[in-house]
């Protein structure tokens, strides 16, 4: 998988609103191309937090123990826009090669 694509996926999901760890994993699981061991998402979330791209806060849960919710910061939104552009560019380039039956 392209380098940084998991980071892009996480930022894109968080761009739609705050999420907690398991919720993020479920959203990723819906995209079948993204296959990871669920535990590895937590170091990545904390790296994004260390970079200032996401913020996290514990909130009480309606069922069971409290959950740690992640939200996108202003820096995270800028990074998401940048990664989205890079991804579109990459995707367009690959599509052009893969789907061009008449090419050399």
């Amino acid at each position: 998988m392209r380098r940084g694509s998991l980071e892009l996926c996480l930022l894109a999901i968080l761009g739609r609103g705050k999420r907690y760890g398991y919720d993020l994993v479920q959203a990723l699981a819906n995209a079948e191309a993204v296959v990871i061991k669920e535990g590895t998402i937590y170091p990545l979330l904390n790296r994004l937090k260390a970079e200032g791209l996401v913020a996290a806060e514990w909130e009480p849960s309606p069922q069971g123990p409290a959950r740690k919710y992640y939200t996108l910061t202003a820096d995270g939104q800028r990074k998401l826009a940048l990664l989205r552009d890079e991804w579109r560019c990459f995707k367009t380039g690959v599509d052009r090669i893969v789907e061009d039956d008449h090419g050399p």
């Binding site: 907690y20 760890g21 398991y22 061991k37 669920e38 123990p65 409290a66 959950r67």
Partner: peptide, 29 residues
């Protein structure tokens, strides 16, 4: 945080049997 993940996964399964717990832990890695 990992404990909260396990609790959420088990709550989503509505089954806290041994097989279910092992599956959740297996998916966590």
């Amino acid at each position: 945080e990992i404990r909260a993940h396990i609790d959420d996964a088990l709550a989503a399964n509505e089954d806290a049997g041994v097989g279910s717990v092992l599956a959740v832990l297996e998916r966590l890695g």
